[in-house]
Write a protein that binds this DNA or RNA. Structure first.
Lengths: 226, 226, 226, 226
DNA sequence: TTCTAATCGAGACGGTACGTCCGGTCTTACG
DNA sequence: CGTAAGACCGGACGTACCGTCTCGATTAGAA
C-alpha cells in the first residue's frame, strides 16, 4: 500500500516536504529531562520579553526559540501572561531591597529613588507596564502577578511602614496600605499613563508631600522624624 | 453607428443590456451618508466595549455590529485601541465634575469619592483598566488616551489644586502634578493592580494622609483648611 | 487512476464509520487524522469546481465546505489554482483511453471523438478551460497542470503516434509533438476561443486533413494506412 | 456638537486629514472633456497591461494611473477584461498582414512564422495568453475578444484559404475553419499550455504536416502547389 | 535482551482575527 | 444640473496565533 499513508494523494506541490527529515536542531522526539526543557523555555521567554516586548511575545515564538513544543508550555503555564511573568522573574533577579534604617523618611526616599531608576533606566519598567497591561485581560496573569509579585512587594513595604508606626514615627491611625498606593502606586500610575515623567524629584516630592502634609500654616516645615 | 459617437471601441456589450440587478436583500452596497456610518461604528464600538470588554472587542465584530465594513473603520481609526477609546468616550457621557467650593479638602474628598464610585459601581472602571492595559502595547491608543482623556483630567485637577494653593490653602512649594498621582494615581493603581479594594474609606484616607501628613507629633490633627 | 500508490485517503470510498460530528457541535479543535482532512478538502474542491466553476472557486468557500481551516489548505496547496486542479483530478475519474489498435487513423478518430464528447457533453470542458485560463496568471497552477495533466497526456498521445511511425504508417520525418498540437491542440483552441464549435465532424476533419494532406491533385484520396 | 458635521467627532487620529484639500494631482472634480479622459484611461490600461500583466491589472489601478474615477471606467467598459482588451488593442497597433501571393504554402509559412515571432519575441504573446485566460471567467471579455479580435483574424485567414481552394490549390472538401485551428490554433495551444516551445521550425512543420499529409507511401514528398 | 506500553515532543488541526485589496454601487460636491 | 470623485459594503486574500489533539519516536519496564 502506501509508503506515506497520510500523504496528499495528488497534491501538486505540498509545501512541507513529506519525508519529515530530522531538521538539524533536535536529536529526536523523545523525552528530554523535564527541568532542562523548563529552563530553556523560561530562558527563551525572558529573552524574548526583554528584547521585543509583550506585543511580540507569543507562545509559539517562545516554543520555537526554546526548541520546545507548545504542548509542554501549556502543560506548565496557564496562559501566555503567566509564562511571561515567570520568564521575566527568572530573567531579572530583581532584588530591590527595602532598607529599614530607622529613619522612615530617608528609607522611603531611598527606596523610591531606586525604584524610579529601575523603572526608567532599565527595561524592567516597560516590561512591568506591559505585564500589568496584559493582566487586565488575562486573569491567569493577574492572579500570578498578584501572587508572585505585587502582594510580596506590598507586604515588604507594609512591614517597613508598620514598624515605623510602631516606633511612633507615623501617626497611629495611618493605614500603611493606603500609603503604599500613594508612593509606589503613584509611580506605577506614571509608568502606565505617562503624562508626566518618573524622576527622583518626583519620588522625593511624593515622600515630602506625605510626611509634611500639603497644608500651609503652623507645623509645616517639619522634616525629620528623628 | 453608436449613439455615443466617442464611445468605447471595444465595449462588447452596451451597459444598458447588462442586468446588474440588485442581487438580494441588500438595499445597496454603495455609499451611505458620511457621518451616519461613523456614528453607527462608534455606537457599536461603545456598546461592545461596555457589554463584553476589551477581550471581545475586535474590529471585525464592531464592523459586523455596525453594519459597516472593515475598510471604513481602518480608514478612520489607526488601531483597535483608538477605536475602543473613541467608542467609550461617546458611550459614557462623562460628567465627573471637579467641584471648587473653596474648601479644597472637601472638594477633593467629594471628587475622589465620586471617582471611586464610578470605578467600582459602573462598567467604566473595568473598561478604563482595559483601555490603559491595551495602551501599553498600542502606541496609537496610548497617544489618543493621553490626548483625549488623561491630559484633560490632569489639567482640571491641576487647576483646582493650583487655585487652592493661590488661596493659601496649600503650601506654596507643593507641585499639583505630584499630588494628582498621589490621589487619582493611587486609585488607578488599585484599579490596575487590585490587591486592595477601592472604597470611599480609601479615598478619604488618601486625602487625609496628604493634607495632615503622616507624621505623628505636634501639628497632627489639623483638619480644615478654612 | 486506480494505481495511485497512496490512494486510500482520497479514494471515492469514504470511511463509512467516521465519527465526524455534524458541524456545529465541533467535538474539538484539535487535529483530525491527517489524510482524512485532505480528502475532505479535495472532495469539496472538486464539487465546488464542477458545480459553480472557477469564478466561484475560492479558498474560503472550499474551507467552509470541507469543514477545514484555511491554514490547512495553505499548508498543502500553494495556490487556489493548484487546489482546483487537484480537486478536479480527484473528482473526474478520467478514463479517456488512448486506443492502439494498429490502425492509426481509426484510433485517432476515435480518441478525438471521445475527447470532443468529454469537452462538450460534460462539465469537464468548461472546468478545463477555466483551469487553463487561471494558469495564465497562476504559475503554481501552470506548473501543476503541466506536471500532472498535460505532460502525461502528451506523452500518451506521442507514444501512439510514435508506434504508428515505427510501423511505417506515418512518414519518418513526422514530429509527433507537432501532430499533437494539430489534433488535440486544435480542440483546446476551440475550447478556449469558442468561435467555432467542437463537433465530431470537426475532430474527424482534423484527422482527415492531416492524414490525407490538404493539397489537391494526384495522391489525394488515399485513406487507409493499412 | 461637532463643527465638522460628518467628521469623526472625537477620533483620536483620523487617518485622512480633515480638510480634504486637493492633493496635487487634480484640479478639481468637475468634468473634463470626455475623449481626453477616455484616452488617458486607455493609455494607462495599455501601459499597465504590458508592464505588469493581467495579474496586476485592476480597475482601481487603471483609474489611479489615469487620474480618472472608477465611475468613469464602469460607464464605458463592462468589465476589467473588456477594458484590458481595449487598452491592449490601442497599445499595440497590431498589423500582422496576411500575405496572398498565390502560393498558399509560402504564404502560410510566412504568416505563421511572423505570428510565432510576435508571440515569443514581444510582450504580445504573454498578454494575449492572459487575455484569453481571463476570458474564460469573464463573459464580457470573451464576447469582446471574439468580436474585436479572433473573429476578424479567422475571417482573414479563412479568405486566404478559400481563395487558395478556389484556385484549386487545396482540395475542394477542405474546410478552412478546421485548417485555421490546425495552424494558428496549434500555436495558441502552445502559447496557453507551454509544454513545447513555439519556434519557426514548429510553424513550418505545421504547414508541412498539413499540406503533405502524414502518411508515408506514394505521393508523399509533393511540396509545391504551383 | 527483546518486546511491548507508557509518555512526551512535534506540529497539524479548526477557529478567529488581523490588515489589505478590489469589485461594483451609491452619495456628494464640484464646475 | 450633469458628472467625476471616491466613500461605502462585501468578501477574499494570505498570515499569525490560540488551544486542542493525533501521531510517532523514545525509552522504561516486563517478559
Amino acid at each position: 500500500m502506501a509508503p506515506t499513508p497520510d500523504g496528499p494523494t495528488a497534491s501538486a506541490a505540498p509545501r512541507s516536504a513529506r519525508p519529515r527529515a530530522p531538521q538539524g536542531t533536535h536529536r529526536g522526539r523523545g523525552r528530554r529531562p523535564a527541568g532542562e526543557v523548563r529552563a530553556d523555555i523560561l530562558r527563551a521567554a525572558g529573552a524574548l520579553l526583554l528584547d521585543e516586548g509583550m506585543a511580540a511575545f507569543t507562545i509559539e515564538r517562545v516554543a520555537r526559540a526554546a526548541g520546545a513544543s507548545k504542548t509542554t508550555i501549556y502543560k506548565w503555564w496557564p496562559s501566555k501572561g503567566a509564562l511571561a511573568l515567570d520568564g521575566y522573574m527568572h530573567a531579572v533577579e530583581e532584588t530591590l531591597a527595602f532598607p529599614d534604617s530607622g529613619d522612615i523618611v530617608a528609607d522611603l526616599t531611598a527606596q523610591l529613588g531606586a525604584f524610579a531608576t529601575l523603572l526608567t533606566r532599565t527595561r524592567a519598567g516597560r516590561v512591568l507596564a506591559e505585564l500589568i497591561g496584559q493582566a487586565q485581560t488575562d486573569p491567569d496573569l493577574a492572579a500570578a502577578y498578584q501572587a508572585l509579585y505585587s502582594a510580596g512587594r506590598r507586604r515588604l513595604a507594609g512591614e517597613v511602614l508598620l514598624r515605623a508606626r510602631q516606633r511612633g514615627q507615623l501617626r497611629a491611625d495611618v493605614d500603611p496600605r493606603v500609603v503604599i498606593d500613594q508612593l509606589w502606586g503613584a509611580c506605577y500610575h506614571r509608568l502606565l499613563v505617562p503624562d508626566e515623567p518618573i524622576t527622583e524629584e518626583f519620588t522625593a516630592a511624593l515622600v515630602d508631600n506625605l510626611v509634611r502634609g500639603l497644608l500651609s500654616g503652623p507645623g509645616a516645615g517639619r522634616r525629620s522624624a528623628r
